[in-house]
Computed example of a mutant assay.
Amino acid sequence: MGYKGPISQRQRRFGEELQRQRVAAGLSAAEAGALVGMGGPAVSHTEAGRITLNAERLEIWLDAYGCTDSAYRATLAEMGRSAGKGWWSEYENKVSPLALDLAETEDRSVRVENYEMLYIPGVLQLRSYTEAIFEDADGGTDIADAVRFRLDRQRILDESRDFHFVIHEAALRMRFAGDAVMRAQLIHLLDLAERPNITIQVLPFTAAKKPPSPNSFLFCEPGCLDLSTVIVDAPGRAEHYGDPESIVAYRQMFEQLRDLALPAVDTAEPRRGTASRDSWGILHHLLYLIQV
């Protein structure tokens, strides 16, 4: 059965994984199709994300391709049978398809790693901070939907999944939202850092080396590292990567950023020494600098 409407990032990724497995096994589209009673063109459409694939055919293909990784098979099967519906569905035709893809990708994740250079990460933003970001955009109704959508994304901040944020000091010093909003936003970060599933680190201007990535990015892992998705900020859009090389490269980048950043905010740790010795200290130092 063919999909109705635009092909989502999840559908494209499902097809790409099927093609990657088939090519690695050395089978042609026609040979793979013969295993499940499909023609070569139908296999190509499936691998392009245009038509669905039932669970029985998926199992036959993965067996034939020599795929024995149980976590990969289970996660891929879930990706294939998903209807792609969730809280984000009410925003169809209200926000961009890229935004909908982002929400679905986050929702499927059990671990999210996020590096941000100029803004507070979206799921950590206060309403007033988000409104300041969108206030110069055109179209009042669209702005309201965009703000509400970003705030609704924050429902993923529950303890069933882990979050690790590395935020550049530049993002913490930006005052475009006004001093009162920025002060409230810094306090909000400290409050969120108390949650056991949220880790926040600050990458200071004084870091010993330059950051390994010139762009902000999001690393979403759905329970199987090989099926992770990297979302990289680019001018006017976001690029999605799911190839093995990108997954390895961006995972290594985040590990490097984690090592370069100050130690994570730990509200249970007794405070000693200078204000900038760790991420907790620099957040409080920046709070001290904002007079409201």
Rank of each mutant, 00 (worst) to 15 (best):
D142Q: 14
K209N: 12
D152I: 10
D266C: 11
Y129V: 06
E92R: 14
I156D: 04
V36E: 08
L257T: 00
S246V: 02
S109K: 01
A34W: 03
A177S: 12
R10G: 02
G178I: 06
Q9I: 10
H284V: 08
I282Y: 00
A184P: 01
T46A: 14
D69N: 13
G40I: 02
S213L: 02
V36T: 14
A25G: 06
T105G: 01
A29K: 00
A261T: 00
Q19S: 14
D179M: 12
V230M: 01
G122W: 02
S89I: 10
T130R: 03
L283T: 05
A83S: 15
E56G: 14
F205N: 11
H164W: 11
R20N: 07
E116W: 01
R108E: 05
A171T: 05
L126E: 07
V23C: 07
L102V: 09
C224W: 00
D158L: 14
F205K: 08
P121H: 04
L126V: 08
A184S: 14
D101I: 04
A34G: 10
D152N: 15
R12V: 06
E113H: 08
P121C: 08
F163I: 05
L190A: 07
L126H: 04
D226T: 04
S128V: 11
L53K: 02
H168G: 04
H285V: 05
R195C: 12
G5N: 09
Q201N: 04
